[in-house]
Amino acid sequence: MTAAALLVGLLTAAGVFLVLRGSQLRLIIGFILLGHAVNVLLLSAGVLRWRVPAFADGGLDRADPLPQAFTLTAIVISFGITIYLLGLLRTGGAEASVIEPDPADDDGPTNRPTEVRDRDET
């Protein structure tokens, strides 16, 4: 078992756990961790025996540049989605504060949307 594999396992387990825990912010953080896990997986697909940065200077014992390009793309895409999820979180929080502007309300901001929606339906 290589260190990279253990990293993937660790990040995946933590990501899955957080995603399953219900609150919106934890869902987003779980998503970020799962993204990290995939990035590590992509890089280790490039065989981590070669670790010299891939700059063109004639040598062939360089890190595989193609998985790195993929990883870079993946990072930026998951950044975009994270931002979007945060936007949704923001909307949910705003909805709650519009409907119930009571500052003494004790609930954290993250679990509000589902509660508000429940109340609307009943």
Partner: peptide, 15 residues
């Protein structure tokens, strides 16, 4: 799931 992910990574990369 973490164990499976780690095992899969170990089994399928680096060869």
């Amino acid at each position: 799931v973490g164990v499976i992910a780690a095992a899969g990574t170990a089994a399928l990369t680096g060869r």
